[in-house]
Simulated scan of single mutants.
Amino acid sequence: MFLVKVTYTAPLGEVDAWRPAHGDWLRELLGRRLLLLAGRRVPLTGGVYLAPDMPADALEGLLATDPYVVNGVAAHEVVAFTPLMAAEGLEGLLEPTG
């Protein structure tokens, strides 16, 4: 599993121009379960995604298609981890998905 930290590298006005395309990109990946969660950081300096287990190069390939990255307004930092415990009802996240 992966935690992806998104950091804006441009002013919010420039980021906002790509927000609709980025939202479409997120909805598509969430629909395909290539991302499990996505949300904004507080304060709004970027976002965070939770991605299922998959080959690291496959995730890097997906992240490279993010409209924010393609248009140079954000960067990703990926942290791989092995989930060992989960809250009740989220035990399915402990099973390999990729």
Rank of each mutant, 00 (worst) to 15 (best):
R33N: 11
A38V: 14
V78A: 10
E28K: 15
R19D: 03
V42M: 11
P52G: 12
R19F: 07
A74V: 06
R33F: 01
H76Y: 12
R41C: 06
L30H: 08
G46K: 05
A87D: 11
W25E: 00
L29S: 03
R40P: 11
D24R: 15
L37P: 04
V42A: 14
L90N: 08
Y68E: 01
H76S: 05
V78W: 06
G23P: 00
V6M: 06
M1H: 12
L93A: 08
L34C: 03
E88Y: 07
L90S: 11
K5P: 00
A58W: 06
V4R: 02
T7L: 03
V4L: 06
A80S: 14
L50V: 15
V79Y: 15
A56Y: 04
D66F: 03
L63Y: 01
R19K: 13
L35S: 00
G92R: 05
P11E: 10
L34H: 07
A21L: 09
L26I: 14
T7E: 08
E91H: 10
D16G: 05
V4D: 00
D53H: 10
M85H: 13
A17V: 15
L26T: 04
N71F: 04
T82I: 10
L59R: 03
R19M: 11
R27E: 09
V69K: 14
L59T: 00
P55E: 13
L36R: 05
L30A: 12
L37C: 11
L3G: 10
L29V: 04
F81M: 08
V6S: 01
G98C: 07
E14A: 12
D24Y: 03
A17M: 09
H76T: 02
V42D: 15
V78S: 11
W18V: 04
N71I: 09
F2W: 09
P43G: 07
N71T: 12
G31L: 02
R27I: 04
K5V: 09
R19C: 00
V69S: 07
M85L: 15
F2H: 14
Y49G: 00
A58C: 03
G61P: 01
P67E: 03
G46F: 01
A56W: 01
A64W: 03
A75V: 13
M54V: 13
E14H: 11
M1V: 14
L12A: 09
G13S: 09
A80H: 13
L26N: 04
G13E: 10
T45N: 04
D57C: 06
A64Y: 03
V69T: 13
V73R: 04
V4M: 07
D24A: 15
A17I: 12
W25N: 01
L12V: 11
A87M: 09
R33Y: 00
A80N: 09
D16M: 13
V6A: 02
R19P: 00
P43R: 08
L26E: 01
